[in-house]
Simulated assay, not measured.
Amino acid sequence: MSKPKIVVIGGGTGIPVVLKALRKEHVDLTAIVTVADDGGSSGRIRSAVNIAPPGDLRNVLIAMSDMPKFNEEILQYRFDESDGEFAGHPLGNLIIAAVAEMQGSTYRAIQTLAKFFHIDGKIYPSSDMTLTLHAVFKDGHEVSGESHIAGYKGQIDHVYLTETSTGEDPIASRNVVKSIMEADTIVLGPGSLFTSILPNIVIPEICEALWKTSARIVYVCNIMTQRGETEHFTDADHVRVLHEHLGTNIIDTVLVNSEKVPKEYMNSNKFDEYLVQVDHDFEALTAQHVNIISNNFLNLRDGGAFHDGEAVAKEIVTIANRV
């Protein structure tokens, strides 16, 4: 049997969990990764070297590689806060930045490192440019810069991207549109709605490809609401916002977690951005003409609520094999 072609779109810490599980399956796997981060190590590097930020790409490279655990720990090693200019930088970010500078492109750097780490699959930054994410709030206020958005006390109406240096609309990296058009199944998330998923799909070429593709589109809904982004959101609200940004209802299937997060489990000091568990509104989901797969996708660890990558991957592969 030929491998079903699965494209996963997103960023942050959500999609690596699913990608790590999917790479063990009999699938042709592609990751399209957001490059709008301007905070922390990634923000400092993009300002200094003028490249697309490496942080989310680093996590995806590791997730899709079968490298030994010690090699992963080397790439994820974060310099101590007392280490001057190196403070807070993961070593993997510096390696990506160095290769990007050598080759004049983050896109080319990731292709080179994918071969270096023997990755069975493809990884593409959503754009090869340095991008700025803008959030327009319901009250008309606008915040520029991904790292600043959660700090404004208001409800986000919509987000959009510009190329940082020119203010122009961003252009998708090569092969991104081709991957979407050739996919059997496209997976959005899991991840922060406004700052990890939407920064990919509001790129005009990617948005248009999602309109045109014949692939089945699956959204993995978040388990917890997120401070400054999705406070008081139901699962149907997440889907509604995606459709509003896309301009049409294109999501075919939604995966929602049915397992309850135990009260007082969440470590609010460690995961202060997460608020409460996302409520279900199956009636509103059905009104958006999506299929609902409700199951136990919960993985409780380290005081946080995460997706069980194996359980999510199993559902995605089942969907892909039906296409």
Rank of each mutant, 00 (worst) to 15 (best):
N71K: 10
M64C: 08
T185E: 02
V35D: 06
V99H: 10
E146K: 03
E85H: 10
V220D: 03
I251F: 07
R58G: 03
L131N: 11
V27R: 06
A311E: 09
G309E: 05
E208P: 00
V176D: 07
G10D: 08
E25Q: 15
S65F: 02
D38H: 00
T234Q: 03
E229F: 05
S127M: 12
V35K: 11
N222W: 04
R240P: 00
I62W: 06
E273D: 13
G167M: 01
E163T: 13
T166L: 06
G167S: 05
G304Y: 03
I251E: 06
Q111M: 14
S179N: 10
V27H: 08
E315G: 00
V177C: 04
I251R: 07
G304F: 01
L285Y: 05
H243E: 11
Q226D: 10
A215H: 07
D169N: 14
K270T: 12
I319M: 05
R58T: 02
V177Q: 03
H134N: 14
L19E: 11
E244H: 11
T164Y: 10
I292C: 00
Y265E: 02
I110E: 06
L113A: 04
T106G: 03
L298D: 03
T166Q: 08
K263F: 01
E315H: 14
F117H: 02
D66R: 13
V241L: 03
P90L: 10
S192N: 10
A36V: 11
V60Q: 03
F116A: 15
M129K: 14
F194V: 06
E310H: 12
E264H: 14
A36I: 04
L75I: 04
E244T: 09
T132S: 15
E310C: 01
M224G: 06
E72M: 11
N71H: 13
F116D: 11
E85M: 11
S214V: 00
V278S: 02
T230V: 05
L91S: 08
F70P: 00
D281N: 15
E163G: 04
I171L: 13
I96H: 12
D169L: 14
K314Q: 12
H307C: 02
V278M: 02
L161H: 07
D279E: 15
S126A: 15
L94P: 10
V276L: 08
L161S: 11
I51D: 05
S192V: 03
H289W: 00
G84D: 09
I6G: 12
G145V: 09
N59K: 13
V202P: 03
G309S: 09
E273W: 01
P262S: 10
